[in-house]
């Protein structure tokens, strides 16, 4: 397996002086499902945003397909971002627009200024959007406005918007943090199947250790801006949890040794 994404010595220092990330190194293979876990403020969100440069890292290298993302100019960065889908905790949809409009926004990166601004999409793109919405079980919501949807449905629209980009890598920033357990399971199952059926590499920030262990191939544990664990889900031990969260696994109600979902 070749490495799709490689991070070398990535550091991020905010203007306020806080070191959000220090010397982060890891690589992600093509088609891998990776979860990043860690306490709030460990730098998980910063890390994931450094990959597509929503936040500019202050040092190191982020290599996607061998190209260092940090050196790209504006135009090249936009073209690279097209290959990276992203979904968010708060879905970040344009709530006043319909579901299909929001999904088609994922194609804007392929458009020039005029066609994109006017929202002119080809019929192939529209068909593709409908197909993706079908596969996510949203066929009845296609023309609804996004503010009428439930949280779980909105997150699926978010996934659809990322998928229509035809990305190589899907970044998920706490995708289930605002969802109930049922909706969370639906979302995680979809992410897992995107990874195994479409071969898209998935990188997920998670707060739920049990969910991370159940779905992931690899888990990266972070604490205070550094990677403290990088290994398989099965390799997680009670000490690992302690290293990451500073509390005993049993106190947190985490069972070690839950098996893989797919």
């Amino acid at each position: 397996m070749t490495a799709l994404l490689e991070l070398k010595h990535v550091a991020k220092k905010y203007n306020t002086g806080t070191m959000a990330l220090s010397d982060v190194n890891f690589s992600v293979s093509k088609g891998e499902f990776v979860s990043i876990i860690g306490p709030s403020g460990a730098g998980k969100s910063t890390l994931i945003r450094c990959i597509n440069r929503l936040i500019d890292a202050s040092g190191g290298e982020v290599r996607l397909d061998g190209v260092n993302v940090l050196n790209l100019n504006k135009r090249a960065l936009q073209q690279t971002r097209v290959k990276i889908g992203m979904i968010f905790q708060h879905y970040n949809l344009v709530e006043r627009l319909s579901v299909i409009d929001n999904v088609l926004h994922g194609r804007l990166g392929y458009k020039n200024v005029i066609t994109g601004s006017l929202g002119i999409y080809t019929s192939d793109e529209k068909k593709q959007a409908i197909e993706i919405l079908h596969s996510l079980g949203l066929e009845e919501q296609v023309y609804k406005r996004c503010d009428q949807l439930s949280g779980g449905q909105k997150q699926r629209v978010g996934i659809a918007r990322a998928l229509i980009q035809e990305p190589k890598l899907l970044l998920c920033d706490e995708p289930i943090a605002s969802l109930d357990p049922n909706a969370s399971k639906v979302i995680m199952d979809h992410l897992r199947s995107i990874c195994s059926r479409l071969g898209i590499t998935v990188l997920v920030n998670l707060h739920q250790v049990d969910v991370a262990m159940k779905y992931s191939d690899t888990i990266i544990g972070m604490r205070k801006g550094s990677v403290v664990y990088n290994g398989s889900a099965q390799g997680m031990k009670a000490e690992t949890i302690f290293d990451i969260y500073g509390s005993e696994a049993s106190d947190l109600g985490i069972e070690i040794g839950v098996t893989h979902a797919s």
Partner: peptide, 23 residues
Amino acid sequence: LDKGMIEALRSSGAGWWHIVFQA
């Protein structure tokens, strides 16, 4: 406006005019 909405479109490679007119 919601910051996240703009962030989401930026992350998908959309340009400034796209974000203005579409979001």
